[in-house]
Amino acid sequence: MGGVRETAGAAGVLAVARIGARPDGRGGTALPVLESGGPLALRRTRAGGSEARVMLVGAMSGPLGGDHFTVEADVAEGARLHVGSAAATIALPGQAKGEARYDVRLTVGDSGELCWLPEQLISANGSGLQVTTRVELAAGARLTFREEQVLGRVGEEPGSLTSRLTVLLGGRPLLDQELSCGPGAPGGWDGPAVLAGHRALGQLLVVRPEYATRPVETRLLGEYAVLAPLAGPGALVTAVAADALQLRRTLDEALRLLG
């Protein structure tokens, strides 16, 4: 791992990790860019077929208050990249004042494919984290994107968490969603319109060009999850659950349904 640790403000860690995926010219995908940064370590793992696989390994706990992490992945035209993480990310309170930031920037070129399937983000009591995810897809790009948030470790109240997910397809907005919860969040976040006591929530977004002509059909996945077509060529699963395990079961079921 790079181990470069710059300070962000008072005492936080500023870390950037980058992945660049390109077709290798032999039917596979090369990774000309694989830069770990600070606690964000990237490992290339076993490749399957035309796809390159990368594992994001958290080399220390965090993000802590004041930290600013950025992960960038750029999938060029025709390349296929799968990114997972070795463990859940836990937002913890830090010694530095202020909240932590976690930025994710993903771009996928025409006929490129990105599977972004990290483990959960856990918002621990007393932490403050702002997650900003921006995905820019070329018109013919394919995407499978999962995000799961768990509000508090077992039996504890959550920290404060704001997460915004913006997805652009061919420069136009496909999905833009923000959720704020925990102490300091606008009122009603745990009430009957938003979470109603559920402590795990997730989204699974699948974008495929063929959905433009054959959108998925809306399907209820139990009482607290739904698979539905977006206004563009995307299918979104929105789910809330009592805990991370139930949430993952639902999202896995949806992945199987989408094939």
Binding site: E178, L179, P186, A193, V194, L195, L201, A225, T238, A239
Partner: peptide, 9 residues
């Protein structure tokens, strides 16, 4: 862009 999962579901 605030969303409310239970309103959507």
């Amino acid at each position: 862009a605030g969303g409310a999962p239970l309103l959507e579901i």
